[in-house]
Design a protein around this nucleic acid. Structure first.
Length: 300
DNA sequence: CATTCGTGGCA
DNA sequence: TTGCCAAGAAT
């Protein structure tokens, strides 16, 4: 083996990225925010709604939002109460407030046009490493590595031969950039394609390797599909947590057409101390406000 | 770097 | 039924 000058480096090699792009051409879901003519604003709204939220739940709300607020300035002009109600049950309603704040910043500082550069996007409230790159890439066709939970899982298996992804790291961006096709146009499609592969085939539960276009190059399969080493990732509890209580309180206020008193919030949760703590945190977050006469409502 | 922050479908 | 988990961000 000493005279093997062109021995390939470990890992699937750059052709894997090309194969994934070709797979995407036939396997991609027809999602509304991927269609031609969808602007940066619509893409930004979709990406924020999709944070930790399934596609099926986002679709109808996204359509309503874009019809109602077709530009950032329109959303910025809405009240927090309107925005929180329109957010419905997507979860993590602080996202709705931050999206409204981002819209105001875009209207004021960027001429009502969503910026296309990653630094400008990351400067907006609620827009982090992932979302900034997703908007630049999917919304504006910029060549950008885009790393979400799906991509980290695919790279963990395909490149590193591990069953599960580690925590997010800066090196993730380099990992994915190494797989991207040279051609810029294909590299842009690759960014969405590898996400799609993770969402449809290389899934968290039981991966559907039989349907995978790169199964023959996958380091994890080549290693015999070894089980995950180390401690299992802790799953967050929900029942009984402040998150559940906050959700219950917000439910009452979303349904109320007029400000309510503290007694009206009691049915939301039995424990008075936890109820009070959660109501206070909602006030701090700007998801609830108190009127002059001490009643509670969504911020007008 | 670990936690917190909603919600509901599904294996 | 219960646990898993779904295009993260902020602190």
């Amino acid at each position: 083996m000493t005279s093997s000058p062109t021995r390939p480096a470990p890992g699937p090699g750059p052709e894997a990225g090309e194969v994934i792009v070709d797979w995407f051409a036939t396997a991609a879901r027809d999602l509304p925010w991927r269609r031609p003519g969808v602007d940066g604003w619509a893409v930004l709204v979709s990406e924020v709604m999709l944070q930790q939220t399934p596609v099926a739940r986002v679709e109808p709300v996204w359509r309503e939002w874009l019809a109602r607020w077709p530009a950032p300035s329109a959303l910025a002009a809405a009240s927090p109460a309107e925005v929180i109600r329109a957010w419905g049950k997507l979860g993590y309603p602080r996202r709705a407030l931050r999206l409204r704040e981002a819209a105001a910043a875009i209207a004021e500082r960027h001429g009502d046009v969503v910026p296309s550069s990653v630094p400008d996007l990351e400067a907006l409230p609620g827009i982090g490493t992932y979302t900034a790159r997703a908007v630049a890439c999917f919304g504006y066709g910029r060549r950008q590595p885009v790393v979400d939970t799906n991509v980290r899982r695919v790279v963990a298996r395909l490149v590193h031969g591990r069953a599960e992804a580690a925590n997010a790291r800066a090196a993730d961006l380099a990992d994915i950039a190494a797989l991207a096709p040279e051609d810029d146009d294909r590299a842009v499609r690759f960014s969405v394609a590898i996400m799609e592969l993770g969402a449809l085939v290389c899934v968290a539960g039981t991966p559907r390797c039989g349907a995978c276009p790169v199964r023959e190059r996958c380091a994890w399969r080549l290693a015999g599909s070894p089980a995950h080493e180390g401690p299992a990732r802790r799953v967050q509890k929900f029942a009984g947590t402040d998150r559940q209580v906050r959700g219950r309180l917000l439910d009452v206020l979303r349904a109320a057409s007029e400000p309510v008193d503290a007694a009206a919030l009691e049915p939301a949760w039995d424990d008075p101390a936890q109820r009070a703590r959660c109501l206070d945190s909602l006030l701090t977050d700007g998801l609830v406000e108190q009127t002059e006469d001490g009643l509670f409502r969504l911020p007008a």
